[in-house]
């Protein structure tokens, strides 16, 4: 236990968690937007769009996140020299957010699609029958109900995303799991405490998400 409290002075543990939270928030927005677009592709009457959506989901969902992250850094930054920001940290942070967004968009898409399956076909037909074309019908009638039916899988995706932000360490982003590694390296005797600190930190972030998901899913359920 000796020296455990000093760790908080020597290392910016809260700052590292704050990094995970920022990655989560930005990638949540990014993956939600892209995932919604993909879901619209997948339910659209246009065959080629459906094909694009399906191909994206099948490719990205089955590729390990670490590979997408490393590919972004090695290929796009290393080979193609595409730089978003001069600042080294900010640049890699951006890469991490993009990789997380691209990866989790495929899960968001499938979550929304499972939500679409909870919406009876008659809802879309009634929307078409009053003269709404595909996009307005999707936006005004199908998706609002689908999202309510997709709260639980979307919440699960958010939880997975939160924990997956640790993979950003592979893009040299200074986040909690990376910090844990270096803390253990220099304080091997405190390993178990360091490990528990980081684990509990993630629980504190993630548990409320689970509670919120359950609450929202009950509150937003569409009565039929």
């Amino acid at each position: 236990m000796n020296g455990f409290l000093e760790l908080f002075a020597d290392y910016d543990i809260f700052g590292a968690f704050w990094m995970n939270i920022r990655l989560t928030l930005l990638a949540a927005v990014g993956s939600f937007v892209l995932g919604t677009v993909l879901a619209i592709f997948r339910i659209s009457p246009v065959g080629s769009l459906r094909g694009i959506g399906t191909a994206y989901v099948n490719t990205i969902r089955n590729t390990p996140l670490t590979i997408i992250m490393v590919l972004g850094v090695l290929a796009v930054w290393g080979q193609l020299k595409i730089e978003f920001f001069q600042d080294f940290d900010l640049n890699f942070f951006t890469y991490a957010v993009i990789a997380l967004s691209l990866y989790h968009a495929s899960f968001v898409c499938e979550a929304i699609r499972s939500g679409v399956n909870t919406v009876p076909l008659g809802q879309a037909e009634a929307a078409r029958a009053i003269g709404l074309s595909f996009l307005p019908a999707a936006r005004l009638v199908v998706l609002p109900q689908a999202l309510r039916g997709a709260v639980t899988p979307l919440g699960n995706t958010l939880i997975a995303l939160t924990k997956n932000t640790t993979v950003a360490a592979a893009a040299s982003v200074a986040e909690a799991s990376g910090l844990m590694k270096s803390m253990i390296e220099f304080n091997p005797d405190l390993m178990i405490y360091i490990f528990l600190t980081i684990a509990i930190g993630f629980c504190i972030i993630v548990i409320p998400m689970g509670i919120l998901t359950t609450w929202l899913s009950d509150k937003l359920a569409v009565a039929r």
Binding site: G122, Q123, A126, A127, V141, Q145, A223, R224
Partner: peptide
């Protein structure tokens, strides 16, 4: 063309 369905299909939300 107005359409009335057997199962009403009111927008549930």
């Amino acid at each position: 063309v107005g359409m009335v369905f057997q199962s009403f299909n009111l927008f549930a939300h």
